[in-house]
């Protein structure tokens, strides 16, 4: 379908796109620039990328980021899915309240979240480090998984499960052969988003990280204070690429499944 929009509207969207993506384009371009000085283009090179992989600090931050992302993804995916499943059998008043509480971490500003977690950890004397960052990431990722899996469950309705029961399936069989396959795309999408959020998070991590748990975003922040280097551009480019791929994958899983209502990411 072709709509006849005002030509200025097209121009407006174009300007918007430039506004949003120009900074990112610069980073990507200069990550391939042969010269150390950002402003001048002097030829194409991969060398900043290869030097990244020999940099001990970068590799350490990468390992920290991956460990934290994997652990927080696994835990938040399980917890979020279980929360979504169990919320279906609770009464409607209770559910409304719990829903609100589970949505909250999506809404409250990262800085508040980071600060409150920091206060909590120091109050109960948990030393800051990988564990505290993991806990923080689980806290916000869980809400996203919960929202996505809940949307999937709502879209599925009750009838398929009733049909399974009617055909003789026990509660466990109904879950195993009907409910789980139906919500799996949602669970995978939730996990991918949790992973991305963990990998990209700076603000919350910044509050609760310790000396030995520097993640990639925190490392980048530390480096940028000393000036922007081409290695940092390369590192950012990699992070952007990985995030975009993961989010696209997540979107693909959300749209998967026949006859299901399409859900979009609550980002």
């Amino acid at each position: 379908m072709k709509s006849k929009n005002h030509p200025l509207l097209g121009l407006h969207s174009l300007l918007m796109m430039i506004f949003i993506y120009l900074p990112i384009v610069f980073i990507v371009i200069y990550s391939f620039n042969d010269s150390r000085i950002n402003a001048k283009w002097s030829g194409f090179t991969w060398k900043w990328y290869s030097s990244l992989f020999t940099d001990r600090h970068v590799m350490e931050a990468l390992m920290n980021s991956l460990t934290i992302a994997v652990v927080s993804t696994v835990v938040s995916t399980i917890l979020g899915t279980v929360a979504a499943l169990s919320m279906r059998t609770t009464g409607s008043k209770m559910r409304a309240g719990m829903n609100g509480l589970l949505y909250l971490p999506i809404i409250i500003p990262d800085i508040i979240m980071g600060l409150s977690l920091l206060v909590l950890f120091t109050q109960i004397h948990i030393p800051l480090g990988k564990i505290t960052v993991m806990i923080a990431h689980i806290t916000f990722s869980l809400s996203y998984v919960y929202v996505i899996v809940t949307a999937r469950l709502t879209g599925m309705g009750k009838q398929l499960e009733e049909a399974a029961q009617d055909l003789g399936a026990s509660s466990w069989q109904t879950f195993r052969y009907v409910t789980l396959p139906q919500i799996t795309p949602g669970i995978i999408a939730g996990a991918l988003i949790a992973f991305t959020l963990s990998l990209d998070d700076f603000m919350v991590s910044f509050f609760v990280t310790g000396p030995s748990s520097t993640t990639l975003p925190i490392y980048i922040y530390g480096q940028v204070k000393r000036g922007i280097s081409p290695e940092i551009n390369a590192l950012c480019t990699i992070l952007i690429a990985v995030s975009v791929i993961l989010i696209l994958l997540a979107q693909m899983f959300l749209n998967k499944g026949q006859g299901q209502k399409k859900t979009t990411l609550p980002l």
Binding site: L160, A164, L167, G168, G257, Q260
Partner: peptide, 28 residues
């Protein structure tokens, strides 16, 4: 319901979308 020896044909069919015709029929 799973212990009653009768079956219900649902108003909107409620076929399992992730199973083939054959798998749907063999489910019970």
């Amino acid at each position: 319901p799973n212990r009653r020896d009768l079956n219900l044909v649902f108003q909107h069919y409620a076929l399992f979308p992730h199973m083939t015709v054959e798998e749907n029929i063999a489910f019970g």
